[in-house]
């Protein structure tokens, strides 16, 4: 198993009332599977599944990308800067 601290911002941070959650995953998990698992574990995220991206080591990552132990991960919902 791998263990990740998932950083949260904006609407997810408000809805979950925390700026990070812990997630345990099997080894070899992909970004897409990781986001599905996060939504299953924290159902309040589910409405955002279609529009969320995972940043891995501060870079947007594709669904097929495989996560490694120690990766820095953050869930990014549509941004609204400017």
């Amino acid at each position: 198993m791998l263990s990740f601290k998932v950083q949260l911002f904006s609407v997810l941070k408000s809805k979950l009332q925390t700026d990070s959650v812990d997630l345990e995953t099997p080894e070899g998990i992909s970004v897409g599977e990781f986001l599905d698992l996060a939504c299953a574990q924290y159902p309040v995220m589910e409405p955002y599944r279609r529009v969320m991206r995972l940043a891995v080591n501060q870079t947007y990552s594709e669904d097929a990308h495989i996560l490694q132990d120690g990766d820095e991960v953050a869930i990014i919902t549509p941004v609204s800067g400017g």
Binding site: S10, V51, R53, V79, S80, G82
Partner: peptide
């Protein structure tokens, strides 16, 4: 406005604080 992870929250006259949610993922 679509790529950089920055988010804005509006404070409204009725006291509510609302995150502005974009429609499209980066």
């Amino acid at each position: 406005k679509v790529q950089v992870p920055i988010w804005k929250q509006e404070r409204l006259t009725d006291g509510q604080k609302v995150w502005v949610e974009g429609n499209h993922p980066p």
